[in-house]
Structure formats: structure tokens, C-alpha cells
Amino acid sequence: MLAYTVRRLLWTPVLLVAVSLFVFVLGEYGPGDPVEVALGQNYTEERAERLREQRGLNDPVPVRYFRYIGNALKGDFGDSFVFRGRSVAGLLGPKLWVSARLFFAGFAISVGIGVPLGFFAATRQGTWVDPTIVAITLVLLAMPVFIFAPALILLFALNLSWLPVSGWGGFWDTRIILPAVTIGMPGIAVMTRMMRASTLDVLGQDYVRTARAKGLGEFTVRRRHVARNALIPVLTILGFSIAGMLGGALIVELIYGIPGVARFALDSIFSRDFPVITALALIGATALVVANLVVDILYAVVDPRITYR
């Protein structure tokens, strides 16, 4: 277990270097020379040269790459090409914080609703409740987010006037509700299905039968033996479900007007703001890698049956 953890930890930086290299190279071969774009019709070889020199774009790729990584380790991701004079870290910081809170809210909704719902469905297997819940989750899962989001706005903000349409006011603000639900919706479906499957699995296990045979109350059995064990496999997909929320986050930030990082990422890609793109890819990958690492280790801790070679 310890060896495995250490190995994973050592491997993580290598992974990140590979990721950054990949993004860096893609940027090199992408279309649109930022210098040409910046100069527009005032382009002359001379001016372009001067600007390249200023921005250090003339050095060989490996030199630039290592310089970049060196700075990145110090938290300096360079300056944005588009927002002149602004550091990437300064630009991304507040947006990451906004998106992180939004993600967390969406995630809490997924887990908070999905897990109990899945457990409930499993314990009602054989009745109409179970297939109904399964059907609802499937229906929601197939709904494209770019329709789901405006539908929520129309219903809850315009027709019912219960909630505001857009904006961001922090975690404890009514404006977070609709976007969080939109982001969390696919997660609810996934969690429900996972929890249901895993609960059914556990219900058939010997130790549950044993517990019942011991004469433990049904409530105790379910809470102590079934729910707890059923949660374990659900853990594994937490990491993935975070990654899966990104696509939703993009649309959500666009439609709800939230100053988050996903929309900014799209803007940056279109405007070829490579310092921002590289930083985002690095940060995103780091977050994902760390999340998976934590989940893996957690998994190993809660379920001793799992061994890693």
C-alpha cells in the first residue's frame, strides 16, 4: 500500500511534464502566429522580429519550454498574450476559485441526490419505484446541457420567478442554484445508477444475509452493512465525474454568465492565448491527477480487499 502510494506520487510529476510538453508542442504547431496577429496590418519583418525578441519567442523550443516550466513551478505562468501586461496567474486565480466553488456545488448536488436515490431504488427493486428512477436518470442523462440550461432558466427564472437568471454571487447566493443543478444533473444520473448497481451487488452478499440472520434490524443492516459497502465502488468514479463536469461547466458558464474558468479557456483557445492555454492544461491535468490519486488511495484504505501490484 505504502509502496503503491509512493510510486503514484513519484509518477505524478512525470505525468505533468508529459502533459505540459504535449500542450506546448501543440501550441508550436497550431495556426495563427500571435505576433502577426498582434501587429495586424502594421506587420513588417522588422517589427515582428522586435516583438518576438521582446517576448522571447526566438529562443529554441526546448529553451522556452524549460524556462516556462521553471517559472511555472514558482507559480509564474508568464503574461497573457491577449490581456497585455496581465499575468496568467492573476487572470486565472479568481476564475478558478469561482469555478471550483461552482464545481463543488454541482458535485455536492450529484452526490447528495444521486447516492440516496440509487440506494433507495435498489432497496425497492421489484416495485415500480426502481424502474421509474432508472428511467428518469436515463432521460436526464441523455438531455444535452445546451438545452437543459435554457430550459431551467425559462422555467424557474422567467416563468416562476423563483430564482435569478444569471451572475455570480459566491457560494451562498441563490444565483448558484440553477448553474449547480445544471452541472450536477448528469452526475446525479451517474451516481444514482452506480449506487443502485453497487447496492444490489452488496444486497446479494453473504455478510448481509448473515447480518440479517443474526436478527439485526433491517435499518441497521442497511445502514451499517449495505450502504457502507455499496459506497466503495461509487468512490472510484468521483474523479471521473469531476472531469465529466467540465463540458457542462463550459455551457453553464456561457449561458448563466458566470465569470469562471471554462468559458475563459474557450476564449483563450480561440484567441490563441497560449500562455493561458498551457497554464490551464497544466492546472486541469494536475487537478485531475491529484483527484484520481486521492480517490485511488482512499479506495485502497476503505477496501482492504484491494491490493495493488
Binding site: V19, G30, G247, I277, L288
Partner: peptide
């Protein structure tokens, strides 16, 4: 496995958009 992990550790949306936006014109 290691290569796959590198690819998988990208936020996939970012990766997809990045590829579609950079490689296509080329």
C-alpha cells in the same frame, strides 16, 4: 498504460477543443 494516463489526465473537453482548434486548420 503510462501514455494512456497522460492522455487521460487532460480534461477531455479542453483536449478536444484544443485539437479541433489547432490541428484542423493545419
Amino acid at each position: 498504460m503510462r501514455f494512456g494516463e497522460v492522455v487521460a489526465s487532460f480534461p477531455d473537453v479542453l483536449l478536444i477543443i484544443l485539437i479541433a482548434a489547432t490541428l484542423r486548420p493545419r
